[in-house]
Design a binder for these strands. Sequence first.
DNA 1: CGATACCTTGACAGGAGTCAACTGGCGTGG
DNA 2: CCACGCCAGTTGACTCCTGTCAAGGTATCG
Lengths: 248, 248
Amino acid sequence: MGVQFHNGNVKPSLHAFMGTTLPGSRPGLGMEAPLGIFGDRAGDDTAVLDAMGEARLFDRDQSLFAEGDAANAVYRVMDGLVRLYKLLPDGRRQIIGFLRGGDMMGLAAGERFAYTAEAVVPSTVRRIPRARVTALMDERPALARTLLAAMTAELMAAQEQMLLLGRKTAREKLATFLLANDERAQDASGRIDLPMSRTDIADYLGLTTETVSREFTKLKTARVIRLMEGGKVELVDRDTLSELAECA
Amino acid sequence: MGVQFHNGNVKPSLHAFMGTTLPGSRPGLGMEAPLGIFGDRAGDDTAVLDAMGEARLFDRDQSLFAEGDAANAVYRVMDGLVRLYKLLPDGRRQIIGFLRGGDMMGLAAGERFAYTAEAVVPSTVRRIPRARVTALMDERPALARTLLAAMTAELMAAQEQMLLLGRKTAREKLATFLLANDERAQDASGRIDLPMSRTDIADYLGLTTETVSREFTKLKTARVIRLMEGGKVELVDRDTLSELAECA
DNA sequence: CGATACCTTGACAGGAGTCAACTGGCGTGG
DNA sequence: CCACGCCAGTTGACTCCTGTCAAGGTATCG
């Protein structure tokens, strides 16, 4: 008995993670800012931010900050991969985003962080004190617009993720995840680099490790993807994957 | 056999919906802006916004705009209740937020809206062209900060909702929902006004109508809540409800 | 090369979904 | 005014997708 697939429409997939990629910075790495209310005049204000703060290397599983810590700074991932997550009292974990090079975090926080940030692999992260950011906004009002555009993108991604978590099946979730990463994490040979564990993926998609593993296997058996060494994935049949993702 | 409850910690619940309540405006109705990076100098810039645009009455189930429409304006709910939702091609629906008086929407949009907005009950909504907002931001740079604070609150609520959708059980979801509304939708007698249907609640919590109804019944049988006429709910035992919500 | 962590696979269980019937309120129209 | 139809809500019976528990495989690393 082969894997049975639903029918569905082929549509562009969601493309953004929770991380705020500043438009105009790191061309080719960051996602494009939506051409909305704030994005129309986004300059390269981020070049200023990049020169600020100190870059630091975080080891695998080392935390940048924890839920409840005072939110005194914003962070910018230069290289590597960072996970953001929230916990329930009994230990259930929901990953709310993965951040890659060029992404920012910590902008959307109150006095204290509402989530924990950890390096998935050794990662270089720049820490920028909040006072610096506010001061810079005073100097350059355009920066506020840039940040608004970045937060817009982040919020839209969050809404897309709510649709996924609330209404998609396990298979649709994984297919959506793979296609989202197809746009963000392709290496030179067109393969997707997924350095995070099955548990991480499960906690991001609202599933268990076992279910993620089973769905990976089914996609592999159906020749839709190929699992390569080093956690890389090759998308063999993107059309089928798009159908499976049920993207709006 | 009575309803069996889990044990858990009593913690403050999530309190915000997807709507962006502008801090400083409509005291007592809007939620407080987090005292974060942008909120520290949020003035009453929103008074200016309130004077702009035209207020209009929308009937029950009438849409303000649909997913895919050009995002030419932002909207502010003056009175009533509005639902925001996304659809999958096959009709599955995820409500990403309910907006009450004082809430804004449409700030976080690209060229086109990524969700549909509909009045749940007859609602008065102010429509403010985007050009007005951008112009006003040029005049008053502080407005950008206010908007950033508002979007921060919205994003934090979205992340809390991701935790709910991805990791909470049906009972925990409903308990969380009731407590969230306890802070937002209390009437004079301390009861919660829930004008939306069971289907709306289900689509907001990632459940089905039947499951929502069953959990309501269980809470009622356990004397934790009382279902009143007119869609009102009285929270009899908030402590138990907090335990059930498993809020972090 | 052994220890450990991660992944995969199998067997089984259970929570939520599906399908269906029944109830009650409400508006409409005979 | 009351009957009817309609819709939302509730409840029951049953299904099934995903979770749980457990075992075995494989890669990594000291």
